[in-house]
Design a protein around this nucleic acid. Structure first.
Length: 585
RNA sequence: GCGCCCGUAGCUCAGCUGGAUAGAGCGUCGCCCUCCGGAGGCGAAGGUCAGAGGUUCGAAUCCUCUCGGGCGCGCCA
């Protein structure tokens, strides 16, 4: 409908131009918006204000001329000029009702479109290091990324969901050593656990499983494990200490033994994360291993390619990428003095790989604390001859939990954090998904646990789900009374939907596809919860003011048709957010 | 110190990429069922859009500065 109006106005402008009343070289910025105030009609257009100067007359005068040349349309009832020169368009009532036909015809497809035209988009999100369970911060990225992906799919993109697994590097070695030391403890070795190790109880569980499977096969004297290792903090350097332990572990266990311990830690945690996310309704097309990039030579090849770009130089024995040429604050190391490639080198290779796989757009969802990495990753793509603009990095701010009005304190050190699993168990999947995406991503999120749990009107999730359940209940009641909803009969009686509540609902239903489109293209899932809240409110108001199952059969059918459509849109919207639409609560 | 994000009602937040009289929820106060689910509805009070300049027909929105809050500035991942 919006597009219909736009094209009408566009035609009027072309006519003006043909009459020589508009210069030929000026752009025609037709911008049609839904009116905020019903008194201003259904749509408003500000084009007369924007073009008045170019046309050499007052905005109201220009608006007058546009309106005179507006082609007739069956959907438009009347057009008015208001305020400084707005063109307000009032739709015919048949136009407002036509949305019900669309919804009934399209069902769960209502709101979906083909704007993306099947273009391939990759959405990479969460990608937390597999060194422990996901915490509530990761949960926000998971919910946000999942809904962004759902939205892009809904508007016609071919979406690929991916989790990047940081299974290489020192952090993983620290994990392996942590598991091994817990294992040695279980074997009865007098282990002194390093201050820098992973202290979470899940490490002990992994170690116990390892021991059940392999018995004492990886047992070594702790005296040998600690042999020649520099002192731990506070007297010594904790980093040097743990590096020494890693070196000894590799030597004492041999390649095969070390890989077994390492793999036990990695696989167990990865499996836990995978299951956790699946239970949260987040499923990936691919789990992409960082190590695979190193093993198949992609990292090496990428560095070679960078060298050819002339943006690599050597300093202090290391290889540096001249990212400052692309606006970064400083140059970055890609190969360390010891010959090892950095995390950044893997990341360049990974992003190059993404584009080599043919994705036209690549979206990364990162925690806001990683914002400093954006310029260097974009710089590397530019240096490799790729379009850095095709990479969109969405930064998600932290979530802070509140319980009883108090901030829930969390610290990663010592493994003292609230996990995503605990949150789900406490508030449920629906509330967690909904609350996480309620705010735009650059906004800090205050997550009120008490509110998320409360089964009251304060809780927006229940409020919306209740609207859905209530509609289901009306149809159950209809059955009880041995009455039948007849869509075809209803479709002929839509003229009976004439009160203000019904008009408001029709307007809201018609807006849904526009909300999905805007939310998708701007990566703003929060628009969905806001819209659904509004729709639910309009429905509850309607419910309170009018009875649907009434004597007048025609009116009854028309109203059932309307609330049937409301239920469909509530379902469609909740589905995109990943929240269930219960038939009864 | 430099860079990024944020600042809108008592609280938590929207504000459709520059439009008409800045909107919701919670909280407070006052109302509404013989009725399809009261997990509901209606109304009232509540604002110097952090502050100051600027851009223009028009600014919460764009630019500059100031003040507050968060985050980031490794040959870590």
């Amino acid at each position: 409908m919006k597009a219909e109006i736009s094209s009408l106005i566009g035609a009027a402008l072309e006519a003006l131009r043909a009459d020589g009343l508009l210069p030929g070289d000026v752009a025609l910025p037709v911008q049609v918006e839904r009116s905020r105030d019903p008194a201003h009609g259904d749509f408003a257009c500000n084009v007369a204000l924007r073009l008045a100067k170019a046309a050499g007359c007052s905005p109201r005068e220009l608006a007058q001329r546009i309106v005179q040349r507006l082609p007739a349309s069956e959907w438009v009832e009347r057009v008015e000029i208001a305020g400084p020169g707005f063109i307000n368009i009032h739709l015919a009532s048949a136009a407002a009702q036509s949305v019900l036909h669309d919804i009934h015809a399209q069902g769960e497809g209502y709101g979906r479109s083909n704007l993306g035209a099947g273009r391939r988009v990759q959405v990479e999100f969460v990608s937390a290091n597999p060194t422990g369970p996901l915490h509530v911060g990761h949960g926000r990225g998971a919910a946000y990324g999942a809904v962004v992906a759902n939205l892009l799919e809904a508007v016609g993109f071919d979406v690929w969901r991916e989790y990047y697994v940081n299974d290489a590097g020192r952090q993983m070695d620290i994990l392996a050593v942590s598991v091994w030391l817990r294992y040695l403890e279980l074997c009865g070795e007098p282990v002194v656990f390093p201050s820098n190790g992973y202290r979470g109880s899940y490490i002990v569980d992994i170690a116990a499983a390892l021991r059940r499977q392999h018995d004492d096969a990886f047992r070594r004297d702790f005296a040998r494990v600690i042999e020649g290792v520099p002192a731990d903090a506070p007297e010594g350097d904790k980093e040097a200490h743990i590096d020494g332990l890693i070196a000894n572990a590799k030597r004492l266990l041999g390649h095969g033994g070390y890989r077994a311990v390492f793999g036990a830690g990695l696989n167990s945690i990865l499996e836990d994360i995978r299951e956790d996310l699946a239970e949260f309704g987040v499923v990936y097309d691919q789990w992409f291993s960082e190590r695979s990039l190193m093993e198949d030579g992609t990292v090496e090849r990428t560095i070679e390619q960078l060298k050819q770009s002339g943006k690599i130089y050597e300093r202090g024995g290391a290889l540096w990428f001249r990212s400052t040429d692309y606006g970064d604050e400083k140059d970055r190391v890609v190969v360390r003095e010891n010959g090892q490639t950095t995390y950044f080198a893997s990341d360049i290779a990974y992003h190059l790989n993404k584009f080599e796989r043919g994705f036209e757009r690549v979206i990364d969802v990162w925690g806001a604390d990683h914002h400093g990495y954006v310029p260097r990753v974009k710089a590397s793509l530019s240096a490799l001859g790729r379009d850095a603009g095709a990479l969109e990095v969405l930064l998600v701010q932290f979530a802070v939990l509140y319980r009883g009005g108090e901030k829930v304190q969390m610290s990663t050190r010592g493994g003292e954090f609230v996990t995503l699993r605990e949150l789900r168990e406490e508030v449920g999947r629906d509330a967690a998904r909904f609350f996480y995406v309620m705010r735009k991503c650059e906004q800090h999120l205050d997550f009120d646990l008490d509110l998320a749990k409360s089964q009251s009107n304060d809780n927006p999730v229940y409020y919306i789900q209740y609207a859905h359940a209530r509609i289901c209940s009306v149809f159950r009641e209809l059955n009880e009374q041995d009455l039948v909803y007849e869509p075809e009969q209803a479709a002929r009686a839509l003229g009976r939907l004439d009160n203000a509540h019904e008009q408001a609902l029709l307007r809201a239903l018609a807006r849904y596809p526009e909300v999905v489109e805007a939310a998708a293209l701007n990566f703003e899932p929060h628009q969905l919860p806001h819209y659904l809240r509004e729709l639910a409110n309009l429905f509850h108001t309607y419910y309170n003011a009018h009875k649907f199952i009434v004597e007048d059969a025609e009116l009854c059918q028309a109203r059932l048709h309307l609330i049937h459509a409301v239920r469909q849109v509530l379902r469609n919207g909740l589905e995109l957010v990943g929240v269930s639409a219960p038939e009864a609560m």
